[in-house]
């Protein structure tokens, strides 16, 4: 089987590339090239400078009396987490994971037909695959928290809005990764089946699914990891989960409790990450 984009690459966020093997261009090779390089750097520095002025970036403010005091106080309180509060947050923590599970599964199921429509080796008609890809790209431009903020405004505060946001987000991610995996499958079995007169459905069920399924599951697991992290902050816009409690504790300046929540969330996220990475390694 031709290797599809590895989930490791996807997990680390790498677009596609293996590290470039060609020799790096040396700085001082040719005159004109050197000036071009210099001009690029100059432009870059000017842009950066304008940006820094634009946001009133004051790095001294970061180390000023007030900032140091505030930061020091917060960090001091955060270093002494209020463990007695931990028993209050198991329920929202479970809810967070539930939001992630439900969102991932629904999104992944919805992604399957769209991924098939996007893959050019299944759907050679450009008139279908190109609009389908455009829809996918559109969905993927919107961050999950934005989806959540919108759905909260539509459906009211609660876990349902969060789940819906993750459905959309997972749909975009799984569909894109899966259609790329489908396009990378071995065409041999497909050609043999087409030659022996299989129809489109048979082609998909017996030719595509057996080859693409491990990749699909692996991508779904990866999306689940991302979704657990996303679900942990959905509460900041009112979309349920542990984020709601974190927001409340931060607003009432209980940094010791906030720190408990953050630490427990980190533990849960890391555990799920490790379990999922292990499963993905077994799958592929």
């Amino acid at each position: 089987m031709t290797p599809a984009p590895t989930p490791e690459a996807a997990a680390s966020g790498a677009p596609t590339p293996p590290p470039s093997k060609k020799p790096a261009p040396t700085l001082d090779s040719k005159g004109p090239q050197r000036y071009k390089m210099l001009a690029t750097w100059l432009l870059f520095i000017v842009v950066l400078f304008v940006c820094f002025v634009g946001v009133d970036a004051d790095f001294l403010a970061l180390f000023s009396e007030g900032a140091r005091e505030n930061m020091g106080r917060i960090l001091g309180e955060m270093l002494r987490p209020d463990w007695s509060y931990a028993s209050h947050i198991w329920k929202p923590m479970v809810e967070t994971v539930q939001i992630a599970i439900a969102g991932t599964i629904i999104g992944a199921v919805l992604a399957v037909p769209v991924a098939l429509l996007c893959a050019v080796n299944i759907m050679p008609k450009k008139i279908v695959s190109i609009p389908a890809r455009m829809v996918l790209n559109l969905v993927r431009t919107v961050p999950d928290l934005l989806f959540a903020a919108i759905f909260v405004a539509v459906f009211g505060i609660g876990a349902f809005a969060g789940m819906l946001a993750l459905v959309f987000f997972s749909f975009g991610l799984v569909a894109k990764l899966t259609y790329e995996a489908i396009e990378a499958i071995d065409p041999g079995p497909l050609e043999a089946m087409t030659a022996s007169g299989a129809n489109k459905i048979q082609l998909i069920v017996f030719g595509v699914i057996p080859q693409a399924l491990p990749y699909f599951f692996s991508y779904v697991l990866y999306t689940f990891e991302v979704n657990v992290r996303a679900a942990a902050v959905l509460g900041f816009v009112g979309a349920g989960g542990i984020g709601l409690h974190l927001d409340q504790q931060l607003n009432s300046l209980r940094y010791d409790r906030a720190s408990t929540i953050i630490l427990l969330t980190l533990v849960i996220v890391l555990l799920i990450d490790y379990a999922s990475t292990y499963l993905r390694r077994k799958l592929l």
Binding site: D56, A57, D58, N70, M71, I74, L145, I262, L270, D273
Partner: peptide, 21 residues
């Protein structure tokens, strides 16, 4: 990596005040 940036933003808001910085 797993520490959400939204929480990081809230912590920095406390330090340097709300805004782009």
């Amino acid at each position: 990596r797993v520490f959400p940036e939204i929480i990081m933003a809230i912590l920095f808001i406390v330090a340097v005040g709300p805004g782009a910085f």
